[in-house]
C-alpha cells in the first residue's frame, strides 16, 4: 500500500497500514461445500466415539478423554464452520484471548481449592 497522499476524494482502503488489517484470504475465497460435509461426518463420528468411550473406565483419564474429544470437535467447528482457518490473524488473537482468560479463571480457582487441604507450616 503506498504512502502517497490521495489526490482526489477517498482511497479504496483508507485504513491504517498495519498488516493485521489484511485478511488472510481475499474476500472472494469460498470454501467448498464438500469440506463442510466432511467436517459434519467427522463430528458425528467423534460424538459416537465419546459415547462409546464413556462406557469404559479409564479412571482419572475419563475426564481427559472426554475433554479431548470435545476440544477436537470444537476446534473443527471453529476452524471450518466458523471460517477461523481462513480469517485474519486478529480473529485468532480474539479467540485465543477469550480462552486464555477462561483458563486463568479455572486455573487460579483450582489453585485455591487444591491447596486448601495442604498442612500449614509454622515458621521457626
Amino acid at each position: 500500500m503506498s504512502e502517497q497522499l490521495p489526490s482526489e476524494s477517498q482511497p479504496t482502503h483508507p485504513r491504517g497500514h498495519a498488516p493485521e488489517n489484511q485478511p488472510a484470504h481475499p474476500r472472494g475465497h469460498v470454501v467448498s461445500w464438500k469440506v463442510y460435509l466432511a467436517v459434519f461426518l467427522v463430528l458425528c463420528a467423534l460424538t459416537v466415539i465419546t459415547v462409546q468411550v464413556a462406557g469404559h473406565d479409564f479412571g482419572p483419564f475419563n475426564l481427559v478423554v472426554a475433554l479431548g474429544v470435545a476440544i477436537t470437535k470444537a476446534t473443527l467447528v471453529v476452524l471450518y464452520f466458523m471460517h477461523a482457518r481462513y480469517s485474519e490473524k486478529l480473529t485468532h488473537v480474539v479467540i485465543a484471548s477469550s480462552l486464555a482468560f477462561f483458563v486463568i479463571l479455572v486455573f487460579l480457582l483450582l489453585a485455591d481449592y487444591l491447596s486448601r487441604p495442604w498442612p500449614l507450616v509454622a515458621a521457626g
Binding site: 459415547v51 472426554a66 470435545a70 470444537a74
Partner: peptide
C-alpha cells in the same frame, strides 16, 4: 452463523460434562 456455531460449541462441551460422567 458465527453465533449459531458458538451455541453449538457450548453444547459440545455440555454433553460429555453433564451426561457422560463416570462409566
Amino acid at each position: 452463523g458465527l453465533y449459531w456455531h458458538f451455541v453449538d460449541i457450548v453444547w459440545i462441551f455440555l454433553f460429555p460434562l453433564l451426561y457422560l460422567i463416570g462409566s
